[in-house]
Design a protein around this nucleic acid. Structure first.
Lengths: 147, 147
DNA sequence: TTGCAATTGTTGCAAATGCAACTTATAGAA
DNA sequence: TTCTATAAGTTGCATTTGCAACAATTGCAA
């Protein structure tokens, strides 16, 4: 009986102090909000990092894109299918390798950029709205260390 | 042309400074490791919070469990199906409401508790292993504020 | 020069998930 | 007392995702 009280207390301690659990909670909330805002642009959080990576580096291969943030090739392929279908990106034949594509933003894709940046800015602002300036600086420093 | 350089630089800035993006990266890594460790116990990250909630509060209804951490009823139902099938939890008839269940940990479920606590402890330790004591304290304080 | 292990990317299929419709039951307004 | 809106929970179905098999291609060791 005392042992069950121990377990109950431990479970409560996990819920209230586990950094991992809190990060998951926060990440889920962020992801849900991100999905909402991206849906308006006919995008999802699967498309977003691909789009952003190509906006930063025009001409990467699919393997390189996936390598930038750990997304498997089948998911890259599917995200590109969607982004290509909506005219935001295009696959081009690699100059020297017939089995490889290079991925390029189109004008449509470039026009998405400011909207994506704005979504990011707003969600990040909302995320830290209750933190002091010092806490914000420390938070970013720590996150940078953990990534 | 200059505008494309701007967008490329902005995309890079997002990648390297966005708290939201970094949180998503960290959360994904944590989730992946959690899935790995839970798989050994024939559990997933969908089952974990349900199990932990019941270990903390024996006898909650499904609606109450879902309300604790924002999990929809159909997902609670499915997680309970699995946990019940593996003998870790049991649904009981609510004493005064025929359409409601109360959820209880079984002995099998209670035996899972120390293993779950240990998984949490190890992953949390690994998470902050590169942080100083001061950074760890600040990090937890900030996360508690953001949740 | 040749052969094969590895690479790049795609896709079929099974499993998981999101959603809405559904059933049974109940609280409370009329 | 009766009726209905809401509640608790389940599940069918469409969509998404994970995985592994696959085709075409290439780099490099033998």
């Amino acid at each position: 009986m005392n042992n069950l009280m121990d377990q109950s207390n431990k479970a409560k301690t996990v819920r209230t102090t586990s950094n991992g659990w809190m990060i998951q909670r926060i990440a889920k909330r962020l992801n849900d909000r991100m999905e909402q805002r991206l849906a308006v642009l006919d995008l999802s959080t699967q498309h977003f990092p691909v789009m952003m990576t190509v906006l930063e580096n025009d001409g990467l291969t699919q393997t390189e894109i996936g390598g930038k943030f750990g997304m498997p090739s089948y998911a890259i392929s599917r995200a590109l299918d969607h982004l290509e279908a909506k005219g935001a990106l295009e696959r081009r034949q690699h100059p020297t390798s017939r089995r490889t594509h290079t991925i390029h933003a189109t004008e449509v894709g470039q026009k998405l950029a400011p909207q994506l940046f704005e979504i990011v800015r707003l969600l990040n602002e909302e995320l830290v709205s209750d933190l002091s300036v010092q806490e914000r600086e420390m938070f970013q420093k720590i996150l940078t260390k953990l990534v």
